[in-house]
């Protein structure tokens, strides 16, 4: 068992390294794409900045609190994109038939699809997320404790898992149809956009949806309430762990998709 895990990790790292080496063959393109990724999220930031030149707060959240929110969500999203790009662009794999090749290799499908793409250019978004994060934490008067640092880490790890789950749903749907999967953007890009403000500002219905159905609020709103000191409930700090149920049904759907692919073959 242990040997199996070691061999899997080694193979994944090998995939990462070959991906990075491939990308470095086109350095100009790599840096431009990274820059482009930065620009896209920088616009969103600029939007927030202009809004806060005009408004002092949104509901009762301040500028630095909003930045903290946005940066965590952006970091989660870009990490998921960086590692999970193979799922996020899975339609290409189905179209080109390279999923057939995956099936002719003696390794799990998920590991191979994960390994097929490692998108280092998402660093562009992460740089911005880290800068905003730094600004956010220095300006919003948080009394940092070990638990609060742990909370932020939990948010990032579990949030990445939630986004990765969405990418897996998208990939699983590719087994059935390649048409119309654009609607999945609502949940991925949409979540990134919505998540720039604390999810509480949008009203009760959206908060409920993002708590129960697709648990963004568990990795953004509630734990941040604890970090900001807006709630005394210590268990809010561990809410991100609850969100870990989400990738499970996604994986079941993926299994089902692979099964369907093997019986329909196209």
């Amino acid at each position: 068992m242990e040997r199996k895990i070691v061999s899997r990790v080694r193979l994944y790292l090998h995939y990462v390294s070959i991906n990075v080496r491939s990308a470095m063959q086109y350095k100009t393109s790599f840096f431009l794409t990274t820059f482009g990724q930065f620009m896209v999220s920088f616009q969103v930031f600029l939007g927030i900045y202009f809004m806060f030149l005009r408004f002092k707060s949104v509901k009762d959240f301040t500028y630095s609190e909003v930045l903290l929110c946005f940066s965590v969500m952006l970091l989660e999203f870009s990490l998921a994109e960086m590692f999970g790009r193979g799922f996020d662009s899975f339609s290409g794999m189905i179209r080109s038939g390279s999923f057939d090749q995956v099936l002719t290799r003696p390794r799990g499908e998920i590991l191979q699809v994960l390994g097929s793409k490692f998108e280092l250019t998402r660093i562009g978004r992460m740089i911005q997320a880290v800068i905003m994060f730094a600004y956010g934490i220095t300006h919003c008067n948080v009394d940092w404790t070990v638990l609060k640092v742990l909370t932020i880490l939990l948010m990032i790890v579990c949030g990445t898992a939630v986004f990765a789950g969405l990418f897996i749903i998208y990939a699983a749907l590719c087994f059935f149809t390649l048409d119309g999967l654009e609607f999945m953007n609502i949940f991925t890009d949409g979540a990134r956009e919505t998540g720039k403000y604390p999810l509480g500002v949008y009203g009760k219905k959206l908060l409920l949806f993002t708590t129960v159905v697709i648990p963004y609020a568990l990795v953004q709103y509630y734990p941040l309430l604890y970090v900001w000191g807006r709630t005394d409930k210590v268990w809010y700090a561990f809410m991100p762990l609850l969100a870990l149920w989400f990738p499970l049904p996604c994986l079941v759907l993926w299994r089902f998709g692979v099964h369907h692919y093997k019986s329909s073959g196209s």
């Binding site: 061999s7 090998h14 995939y15 070959i18 080496r21 491939s22 090749q101």
Partner: peptide, 30 residues
């Protein structure tokens, strides 16, 4: 599949942008 080899004539299992030997090294781990 550990016991078979498959070549699809119109698809490549080689990584496009790195030396062929790198793809082979990866296959070794796969």
């Amino acid at each position: 599949v550990a016991q078979i080899g498959v070549v699809f004539g119109q698809r490549s299992q080689l990584w496009w942008d790195v030396p062929v030997i790198d793809s082979f090294e990866l296959l070794k781990d796969v």
